[in-house]
């Protein structure tokens, strides 16, 4: 054991392939859309309900990830994924379609990294040759559950965030040269600073991100400069600012391009999406497209993925509870990044 909640993977499981399926808003407004593997031109993705469309996105991403890895469904051993809908039915149905042994994970928007950690553990234990791991969200399905009907008119503040419609899946295998490998995972604690505004999730999640960040770096014996990228999940413009403030107040050097946030960048900082994107699919879609591709191209040698999640429910919010948050970190290394 390295430190409490920190896992060092001696076998360095690899991410063999990744795939992202996304909806029409992402197609039109996301600068990452060119790197997505399948884009739909309707919210319903040819299905009858939002929840079915949500399921379809997960199924597509699973199939595409296997294709890109040159594998078929019979090569896969497990599906580890989650979403935000009640009881995670979209993931459950997608798991039924794939027929794979399945673990549904709920870490809210931090599911992309908690799924990677789980998949890496399966691989490290020698229990699997290929795990499909990922997370998904669907704007319409999530908004109507957590907030209001889609067509209901209410004024969103500048700190609101837009739930993305996307699913991102990674194929995790035992170590293979030439692919990004998973070196360390830090399982997040649940941090609650007493914030209650569900339209300001970034601010609620930033302390959780900082907690995991500090623990991960201490366990790794690393400094922020050792990473080519430190990319949080969906803190958005406000949460990112707060996270950086916390880091620099604690003496870390916060500089330029190294510090990214998937949610802030997801819609190209377009003000009609307010503070940026959120949702379990947000971090999954960016990690499993842009970040992965940059690692494959050699631009990033060592990357720290920190997906953040707000673990509230509509019920807890209405009962006046605060928003408990978490953040799970995954450190990926590639080539010479290993020796750093």
């Amino acid at each position: 054991m390295v430190a409490r909640g920190v896992i060092r993977f001696g076998s360095r499981p690899a991410i063999r392939a990744v795939a992202v399926a996304a909806g029409p808003t992402e197609n039109k407004h996301s600068p990452f859309s060119l790197q997505f593997d399948r884009l739909y031109d309707s919210d319903l993705c040819g299905q009858k309900t939002n929840e079915q469309a949500h399921r379809k996105l997960i199924e597509d991403a699973c199939g595409l990830a296997l294709n890109k890895a040159g594998k078929t469904i019979s090569d896969a051993d497990y599906l580890v994924c989650g979403d935000l809908v009640n009881e995670m039915t979209p993931s459950n149905f997608a798991a039924a379609t794939t027929g794979l042994p399945y673990v549904g994970l709920f870490s809210a928007c931090a599911t992309s990294t908690s799924a990677l950690a789980y998949a890496a553990l399966l691989s490290e234990a020698g229990a699997s040759t290929l795990v499909l791991a990922g997370a998904a969200s669907h704007h319409n399905a999530i908004e109507r559950q957590f907030r209001y009907p889609i067509e209901y008119g209410f004024q969103k503040p500048q700190n609101a965030q837009w739930t993305v419609t996307a699913a991102g899946i990674a194929a995790v295998t035992p170590h293979e040269e030439g692919y990004p490998s998973i070196r360390q995972a830090t399982i997040g604690r649940v941090v609650d600073y007493g914030l209650t505004d569900p339209l300001n999730m970034g601010a609620a999640m930033a302390p959780a991100a900082f907690d995991t960040f500090r623990r991960h770096l201490e366990a790794a014996g690393a400094e922020p400069e050792d990473y080519d990228v430190i990319i949080t999940g969906d803190l958005g413009a406000i949460g990112t600012q707060l996270f950086r403030n916390m880091a620099s107040e604690s003496g870390y050097t916060v500089d330029g391009d190294r510090w990214r946030d998937a949610g802030k960048e997801f819609y190209g900082e377009d003000p009609s999406f307010f503070a940026g994107a959120s949702g379990a699919g947000c971090s999954a879609a960016v990690y499993f497209s842009d970040v992965y591709n940059r690692m494959m191209e050699g631009e990033y040698r060592r990357a720290l993925l920190m997906a953040t999640g707000a673990l509230l429910s509509p019920l807890s919010f209405q009962q006046g509870e605060s928003i408990p948050c978490t953040c799970h970190a995954i450190e990926l290394v590639m080539g010479e990044g290993e020796s750093r």
């Binding site: 909806g23 808003t25 407004h29 919210d43 319903l44 704007h139 319409n140 908004e143 109507r144 009907p149 889609i150 067509e151 837009w162 419609t165 819609y267 377009d270 009609s272 999406f273």
Partner: peptide, 8 residues
């Protein structure tokens, strides 16, 4: 008659 659509 209508279905909801997500548009920013």
């Amino acid at each position: 008659l209508f279905r909801s659509k997500s548009r920013p």
